[in-house]
Amino acid sequence: GNQRYQTAREELEGLLESVREKDPKAELIAQAETLLASEMPTPQAFAEMKEKLNKKLAPAEESHHVGSVDPNEVAPTVEALPELVIETETTAYERQERPNAEFLKGQRRVVQAGVEGQVRRFVEVDTKDKRTLRSTEVVKEAIPEITEVGTKVLSSNQPAEGVKDLVLETPKLEIEEGTVSFEHQERPNAAFLKGQRQLVQVGVEGQVRQFVEVDAQGKRTLRSTEVLKEAIPEITEVGTKEEQVSQTRDQALLATPAKVEETSKQLPNTGAETDASLVALGLLGLMSGYGLLSRKGREN
């Protein structure tokens, strides 16, 4: 930026000096001096002042008589001024190569993309289409393309026989996903009788991701395993309770006198009612004695 400003300033000072020599009383001299003395002149102001100074320095064109040939007639003169044309064009970027000792020979990598630049030219065109370049202004600097080139050599020795140029083959990494079976677990439950089973938790399969290295010969090597989803085990509760046989026997004994009593009530009224009652009482006493013996046996 400073370089372009200095160049434009020098061009303007040169044009101003030429105008002073041609016409010391020209009004443009004061305007140009004011512009040069300003602290922050704009590129547009420089360009406009250059155009004015160039027009001032342009040679006067030949005048052509228009009208009658009367020598007393004041013929109008037409002054043909040159035209200032501003042209903008792009400039190609450079291609640079930079060595990199970390890359093998033959490897290349673009580390900076190239960008075209842009320049603006101020061209003076006279009535005869003669073009004169007055100044050039860089609008945008071109950015070079930089490519790093490998210089690393693995080995300078070559075998006398066989393949001289060795090819380095690197293994590839494959990612595989699979499922994991869930476990079947059994848990005792004292509230259930033996033989009873109840599913209390449904099993769910898990999921894993495996990283497998495969070399040029197809050999597979497991490098690591990642658990994506833990498997949930299946849990079944199994009964352990023993059935009480003695309690069932007591209930059967207590139910027997009631059945005998019902039978006695159903006998016909034939005079044998007293005998049936005696038989029932005897059976009742026998059952009671048997019940007492059973209870003492359990207590012992």
Rank of each mutant, 00 (worst) to 15 (best):
L193E: 12
G178Y: 07
P59A: 04
K50Y: 09
E137R: 05
E161S: 08
Q266F: 09
L222E: 13
A8C: 07
Q198R: 15
S18C: 02
L193F: 14
G14S: 09
S224W: 11
T88F: 06
A255M: 11
L84R: 02
P144I: 05
Q251H: 12
P233G: 01
S156Y: 04
S63F: 00
A75D: 02
A47S: 12
L199V: 05
E169N: 00
P268L: 10
L284T: 10
E205D: 10
A113P: 15
E234V: 01
V227E: 02
A37E: 09
G291Y: 04
A191F: 00
L199E: 00
M40P: 06
G289Y: 11
I232G: 01
V180R: 00
A280W: 02
D126P: 04
E161R: 12
E145F: 06
K194A: 04
L84N: 07
V202P: 00
E21W: 09
V208R: 04
P43H: 10
E17F: 13
V125R: 14
V180T: 08
T179Y: 05
K130D: 12
K22Q: 07
T225H: 12
S68V: 04
P82L: 01
P268Q: 14
D275I: 09
F182N: 00
N100R: 12
T256M: 11
E262M: 03
Q198V: 03
V85L: 04
N2M: 09
E230P: 04
A142L: 04
A30W: 06
A58F: 05
T132V: 11
A160H: 03
L15V: 03
G297I: 06
A191K: 09
L133F: 14
T151G: 07
V119K: 05
V149M: 15
E141D: 14
Q251R: 13
S264M: 14
G206H: 04
G114S: 08
A80R: 03
L168G: 05
Q3D: 02
L154F: 10
G291D: 01
E148G: 10
P99V: 06
N54Q: 15
K265M: 11
R108Y: 15
Q118I: 11
R120T: 05
E21F: 08
L104G: 14
R108S: 11
M49H: 09
R209Y: 07
V66N: 01
